[in-house]
Every structure is written in C-alpha cells, then in structure tokens.
C-alpha cells in the first residue's frame, strides 16, 4: 500500500527525520507516536503525497511519488482517506456536502441512501444540514472521518483524530477506525495519546511506531 524507504525530510535548513523506512501492508493497523514536533504530521503528509521526501523513496500503491505529477497524486489520493486534526472543511457548505465532496471531485455519484447510512454510522444524521463551524469538536472529527471513508479508500490516515475531543468521544472515534480496519482497510493513526493506543491494543492487533531522535523505531511493551 504505502512504503517509505530510507526517507528523509528537511525544511528550513534542518533535518526533521532521516533514514525512515516503513511499510503499511493491506489490512494492518498502525499507530505513529512521538513527542510534539517529532514530525508525525510531516510523515503522514509524505504518506499521501502532499509533501515530497528530500531523500529516499515513498511509494504510494507501488508508484514512486517523486515521479508523479500533481494530478496523478490527486488521483492516488482518492484511494487514501485522510483525517486531519483541524479537520479542514469548506465552511460555507453543509456537513453532508462536505462529506460527499470526495465523490463530487472524482465525478462519482453516491446515492442519498449511502450518504444517509454513512451519516448514521458516524452519528451525524441530525447535523447533516448544519455548517461545519456549528459543529462541536467531536462532531467535526466524525464528519472528517466520514469524508475520509466515503470513497471506500484502501488506506485511512488520521492525524491526532482525538486531539480535540474528550475521552468518551475518542473511544467512539477509535471504535469507528477499528471497525474500518476489520472491513479490511489499512489504518495509520498519528497520536501522542498513549491511553488511546493502550485502549486500542486490547481490541485490535496494532503495531506502534515511534518517531524519536529523527528516526522511527518500533515501540515496545512500555506503552
């Protein structure tokens, strides 16, 4: 699905990380953890082609992102659902239209019933007509998750999806992500919330990766 081979990323003269190798196999569940500023968000952006590595190779569904034009990256991005910490919606459009946006831009037509079912799955049926700024933090995260999965992507990347929500809501979001993984989706969650990781490990076989000292390492049992 997504492979990083000896990847480095530098900006502003400083190297954020180097020699990072990672492989996300189909149907696996990963956590990416590490201190703030370690480069978790950057690593995620490399995974869906928003950034290009300064060294090494990033392969998205077998294709080297360095060789891809912007439009080709956009095409591949339709197979990757991304949930941002700050969600990033079009604030002038209702929640339902925001969630359906990936279908719109790809020229596909979803049925109202499918959208209704998806809204029900994330518990936002009553908020479908509201504008994103009217939603609570947890509702926004669930809306972002619904938008990320509407194209039935192969991979779901979530960047601090529980960063702005309380414990109950983070458990609810985690449950949704685990459900997706059980449906065969590959999931990578970047988080510094160790409690979330512990809670997940009791429900799913998850691999935990830690970004520290500019390197990636497999986390042990000390979580």
């Amino acid at each position: 699905m997504i492979e990083l081979d000896e990847v480095a990323y530098s900006y502003g003269g400083g190297e954020l990380f180097s020699s990072v190798s990672l492989s996300l196999a189909p149907g696996t569940f990963h956590f990416l953890t590490g201190p703030s500023g370690a480069g978790k968000t950057t690593l995620l952006k490399l995974c869906y082609g928003e950034l290009k590595a300064t060294a090494g190779q990033v392969r998205l569904f077998g294709q080297d992102t360095r060789d891809l034009a912007r439009d080709e990256v956009a095409q591949l991005r339709r197979r990757v659902g991304v949930v941002h910490q700050d969600c990033q919606f079009l604030d002038h459009l209702p929640v339902a239209e925001n969630i359906a946006m990936p279908l719109t831009v790809s020229g596909r037509e979803g049925t109202p019933e499918d959208l209704e079912a998806l809204l029900g799955w994330v518990g936002l049926r009553c908020q479908a007509g509201q504008l994103p700024p009217e939603l609570s933090g947890g509702e926004r995260q669930r809306a972002a998750l619904a938008r990320a999965v509407i194209m039935s992507p192969d991979v779901i990347l979530a960047d601090e999806p529980t960063g702005n929500v309380d414990w109950d809501m983070s458990q609810r979001l985690l449950t949704l992500l685990i459900e997706l993984n059980r449906m065969g989706k590959t999931v990578l969650i970047a988080t510094h919330d160790l409690g979330l990781i512990r809670a997940a490990k009791s429900q799913v076989e998850a691999r935990v990766l830690r970004l520290k000292d500019r390197r990636i390492q497999a986390a042990g049992a000390n979580l």
Binding site: R70, D71, A74, R77, R78, V82, Q88, M101, V105, S106
Partner: peptide, 9 residues
C-alpha cells in the same frame, strides 16, 4: 481542502 479530497488542478 479540495486537494485533500483528491481534486485535480
């Protein structure tokens, strides 16, 4: 946002 959801240029 449009790029994030896979919109081409």
């Amino acid at each position: 946002v449009m790029r994030l959801v896979g919109a081409r240029d």
